[in-house]
Structure formats: structure tokens, C-alpha cells
Design a protein around this nucleic acid. Structure first.
Lengths: 237, 237
DNA sequence: TCCAATTACTACACGCCGTTTAGAAAGGAC
DNA sequence: GTCCTTTCTAAACGGCGTGTAGTAATTGGA
């Protein structure tokens, strides 16, 4: 009956841990990231708050794990949308990624806040961890999108900074150059700009700054993304 | 000695109110928005927490007031930078606004979080209030920047949505049409896009997503803004 | 000038929170 | 069967926003 590699205790432990995270997600969906309290989770599970410390050393550890899960689900959605479009149309792949991200954010606004905002009172993200891993995946995805469009990107402005590999994080650079050996440093800067451009309207919308002004933010976002794609020379007809 | 219009009590009240806000700002600068607690403010003032309820009905009221002050100071900085550039160079005025905003955000990251993030646990911004007023000022400033550049903006893509005045908030539209009677609705959509574009990299940077990747985010931001200006046809040499 | 009303404040209580500690109970290893 | 580890409870600590009762001071009007 029992598995050779995982003891009964390990299975119970994994199950309880998953239940803690699931309840935390539900609390967040209902009342925002602030509603994630150890006491509320324990209440929902019929336990005491102290019991959770058997699974997560501190509340911030739990939040960090949640950020990793949530970020991963967002990047999964973006990658799936991108991969549903043939690589022969880089512009359409960029658009698919962007719209998937926005769709995910609108469907999971509290998750978006968890990733890109102040997650929870007093929380400060650790240098590494599962959230970092998902962020690297997101960055790599964007680099791939930019790399696919790079041959058509117009020569940069004379006023642009002349980027060098040393301008970027060594680990990040190593990843990128392994996947795209011919990509110049300027493409990395462009990737960051693309990221910012996708993020800006999304963040303003999720935090309620845009919706009071325009009835259909999705149209504005779509136009912005089309302009972005056009500026990369990867026109989609 | 005493003023005819303000009683001694009123003056003391205004002074205490200002002190509460000043201490709240200091606490925020030191420990982030989460450090703004009524008890900490009262401690700093040698009072009890309950006393603050004579000045602000609730903690969220205080936060709302702070958001108004902070947002106003940010917009003041942006407008001053813009006005230091002659109106004959719309592109340079846009760049000045954008760089002033980013400079302010870097100098007051907690203030930026207060305005554009989850300010404080459980806080939800009210529909109107002083924060709204500053946001309207910021929007109007951006509309003015876009309006000045509008004659040079290339015709929109055929894929763009055809915007109508009914797509936007009536009050917002009334303001805009009073100031810029000849501006078409598409310019409002463009203004929102400009806002998003200025906001994106800034938000990613303030929340720590960019800095681990690139050593000089300001160069990336500057390039992005230059590209934005170029896309508006308001090239700055 | 004195009185009544308003205001500013303290003291205390309530229920929430994260976290720690001590101890009980149960599971697995030998 | 014994020992050790893990999981949980119960209780406590300090901190939080908020409400209430009561006190002292200030104010404006008779």
C-alpha cells in the first residue's frame, strides 16, 4: 500500500501543505492579498495558527511560495497562448502573449497584485525563490519574442544608449546568449522596454486608474500592443 | 494678535493635523507605507492613538489625505519640469515630464507605492477625494503634452479602434474639450497609452523587477521615452 | 462674567494579527 | 516496546485599528 519513496507522513504533509496554499489562494481571491492571514487559514482548516509553522517557517515564506505558484500559472498561460500561434508570425505571437497576460491579470487581479505590487503588509521579496524562477521564465519568454522579431527591428536611434553585455546581469546574459547566440545587447534593452510597455497599461488598469476614464480599456491596450509590434517591424495584418 | 477668520482653536487644529501628516510621511519614508500606524504616529507625538480620531475619522481617511499630498507633489514636480522647457519643443516637454516623474518616483519610492500600488493593508481608494484631484491634474497634463504634439502624430493604424467621445468618462471629456476644442477622441486614447508607457518601466523598477537585470535602468527608460516621442512625430534632436 | 456646548484628549476594552513556547499526542524506526 | 521526530493545541506577548466613557480645557453667547 505504501510507496517506497514517499512515506505516509510525507504524503500527509504534502497534502496539508497543498491545502494551506489552496485556502490561502481562496482567501486572496475573496478579500485580496491582505486577507491571507495564518489565523484565517487555520480557522478554515479547523486548526490553530501555530500549526502552520510546521509547514512554513513564517508567513512570508508562505507568501513567497504563493507568488511562485501564481507567477507560474501566469507564465503558463502566456506561453500557451504564444505557442498556439505559428512561429512564422512573430508579431502575432507577441500579441498573443500580451493579451494572454492581460486576460490572466483581469481574471486574477489579486494574483497580479501579489506578483507586481506590495503583496502583503511588511513583506519583502527574497532575492531568489520560486517567484524568481517564474520571473526568469517570463523574461526568457519575452527575449524569445523579441529575438524572433529582431531581424525586422529598425536600427536604433542615434540618441539611444549603446548597450554592452556588461550592462546586464551576468546570469541573465548567460541564459540569453545560450539560447540566442547572435542576439546583440541592444535586444535585451529592447526586451525590457517591451516588458515595461506591456506592463504599464495593465498595472494602471488593475489598480483602478484607467477604468474610471475609459469604458473599454482592452481596446486601448490592443492598440498599444499593435503599435508596439509595428515598432518592432513585425507587422501583423 | 488673533486672526479674524481663524480662531486660536482652528490654528492649533491645523497645526496638529499638519504634524500628524508630517509624522506619517516620515514613518512612510522610513519603513514604507505599512509603517503608517495610528499608534506609531501617536507615540511619536506623545499622544494616544485615539486622539488622532479628532482629526481623521479613520486611518483610511488619513491615508487618502496623504495620497492627495504626495500625488500633488509629484504632479508639481512634473509640471515644473515641463514648464522649464519652451512650448515650441513638444517632444522635449514630454521628455522633461517623463524624466521628472521617474526622478520623483526614485526619490520617493514609498510615495509612488502609495499612489500607484496597494497603499496599506485593507485600504481601498474612495471614488473622489484629493488623490483624485491630483490624478486629474496629471491626466490633464498628459493630454496637454499629447495635444501639443498631435499635429505631428502619424495617422493611426487601420487596425486601431475608431474612438468616440462616448468611449470616455463624460467629466473627463468635458475638461479636455474645454481646453482643447479641436482634439479628436483618438488623442485621448493616445494619452492613456502614453501614460501607460511612462508608467510601465517606472513601476517595474520601483517594485524591484528591473534592477536585478540591468545596471542602468535610467538609460532604458530614456530610450523608451525617446522612442515614444519619436512615435508621436515630435522628434527631439 | 458666567454657563453651556464643543473639542481634544486619556484610559480602557474588543477583536484582530504574527510569532513563540511548552507540552501532549501520534507516527515511524529499530 | 522503546525512542525520536513530527504535528498539533493552548496560552501568551506585543502590536494593530477602532469604539466608548469620562475628563479637562476652550469657546461663543447671554
Amino acid at each position: 500500500m505504501s510507496d517506497h519513496t514517499t512515506s505516509r507522513r510525507d504524503r500527509l504533509r504534502a497534502q496539508t501543505s497543498a491545502e494551506i496554499k489552496a485556502i490561502a489562494m481562496k482567501l486572496m481571491a475573496d478579500g485580496g492579498p491582505d486577507a491571507i492571514t495564518l489565523r484565517a487559514i487555520a480557522r478554515e482548516m479547523g486548526m490553530t495558527a501555530g500549526a502552520i509553522y510546521s509547514y512554513f517557517a513564517t508567513r512570508d515564506d508562505l507568501i513567497t511560495t504563493l507568488i511562485g505558484d501564481v507567477y507560474t500559472s501566469a507564465v503558463d498561460a502566456a506561453e500557451a497562448a504564444r505557442d498556439a500561434v505559428p512561429p512564422t508570425d512573430p508579431g502575432a505571437r507577441i500579441l498573443a502573449w500580451a493579451l494572454a497576460m492581460r486576460g490572466w491579470a483581469l481574471a486574477n487581479p489579486e494574483g497580479f497584485r501579489l506578483i507586481y505590487g506590495d503583496p502583503v503588509p511588511g513583506y519583502r521579496p527574497p532575492g531568489d525563490g520560486p517567484g524568481k524562477h517564474a520571473e526568469v521564465r517570463a523574461c526568457n519568454g519575452l527575449v524569445g519574442l523579441v529575438a524572433a522579431a529582431w531581424p525586422t527591428v529598425p536600427a536604433r536611434q542615434s540618441t539611444d544608449r549603446a548597450y554592452d553585455w556588461a550592462d546586464f546581469d551576468p546570469d541573465f546574459v548567460a541564459h540569453v546568449r545560450a539560447d540566442f547566440p547572435d542576439l546583440p545587447p541592444a535586444a535585451i534593452a529592447m526586451t525590457l522596454r517591451v516588458w515595461g510597455r506591456m506592463h504599464g497599461l495593465m498595472a494602471l488598469e488593475i489598480y483602478g486608474h484607467i477604468r474610471p476614464l475609459v469604458h473599454d480599456p482592452s481596446a486601448v491596450y490592443r492598440d498599444e500592443m499593435r503599435d508596439l509590434i509595428a515598432s518592432l517591424g513585425a507587422c501583423t495584418e
